[in-house]
Amino acid sequence: MIVKHLEQIVGTADDIDTPTWNSRRFLLKRDNMGFSLHDTIIKAGTETLIWYRNHLEAVYCIEGEGEIEVVGGETYPIQPGMMYALNGHEKHYLRAKTAMRMVCVFNPPLTGREVHDEEGTYPLANA
């Protein structure tokens, strides 16, 4: 059984802070669960281009407000209680009106050090 508390992750190597988001990574590839689990803060007033070419992601908003705009498609408001799943590797913009707290799940799981490249993509980890 794996048991972790947020305060055990904050300030460690599993707490990744960038100019637009901060991801506290609870479960990673090394945990052998088949997915990774993240508590992520999207910083207020930011916009991030994201394109998970190599991963599927599900996101559940628990705090804050913003929007997700699919490139060439629709824009959806984000607020607490809203979930979206990027099951088609959709390239998108994530915008935060206020700080948003999101629970994110990735398949395949992340290794823990990933940050978005210039295309908004995470690399696919080697086996």
Rank of each mutant, 00 (worst) to 15 (best):
A96K: 04
R25D: 03
T111W: 00
W21H: 14
E67A: 14
A85R: 11
T121M: 12
G72H: 02
A99P: 07
D39A: 11
F26N: 03
N87T: 15
R24A: 14
V115L: 00
E119Y: 10
G64C: 10
E65T: 15
G64E: 06
R53I: 02
E57C: 10
F35V: 10
L27P: 00
M83E: 09
W51F: 08
G34W: 05
Y84M: 15
Y122D: 04
L6T: 11
A85K: 08
R24E: 15
R25L: 03
G81Q: 10
G64I: 08
I42W: 09
M82K: 14
Q79S: 12
V10T: 11
H55L: 05
L27S: 01
T18E: 15
R24C: 13
L49R: 09
G34H: 09
E118A: 14
Y60Q: 14
P77V: 05
E57W: 01
D15S: 05
M100G: 04
V3E: 08
A99K: 12
W51V: 00
G73Q: 06
T75Q: 07
E90P: 00
T111I: 01
R25T: 03
N54L: 04
A127P: 12
G11F: 07
N32F: 07
I16G: 06
T18G: 14
H5W: 08
T121E: 15
I50F: 01
E63R: 13
L86C: 10
G120D: 03
I16Y: 09
L27T: 01
I78E: 05
Q79C: 08
G81I: 12
G11Q: 14
G34K: 07
K97G: 07
I2A: 05
Q8C: 02
H92L: 06
L49G: 00
N107Q: 09
A58K: 10
E7P: 01
R30M: 03
P19I: 11
P77R: 14
I42K: 07
E69W: 07
E47W: 01
F35S: 02
L37E: 06
V103R: 10
D17F: 01
E119K: 12
K91Y: 05
D15Q: 10
L110F: 01
R24N: 14
H92F: 02
T75S: 12
P80V: 03
D17Q: 13
Q8V: 07
I16P: 02
A125P: 15
M82C: 10
S23I: 04
E69G: 04
D14K: 15
H38W: 13
Y52S: 01
F26I: 06
G34T: 06
T12F: 03
D117Q: 09
E7R: 12
V70T: 02
P77T: 11
A125E: 12
V10H: 02
K97H: 10
L28N: 00
T18F: 13
G112Y: 00
P80N: 06
L28C: 02
S36L: 04
D117P: 03
V10W: 02
G45T: 08
E74F: 02
P77D: 11
K91T: 05
H5V: 07
I2L: 14
E63T: 08
F26L: 07
L37P: 04
K29V: 06
P109F: 03
T48K: 06
Y122K: 03
M100V: 05
A96W: 09
Y60M: 12
I50M: 10
Q79E: 14
D31A: 02
K97P: 01
R53H: 08
Y93E: 00
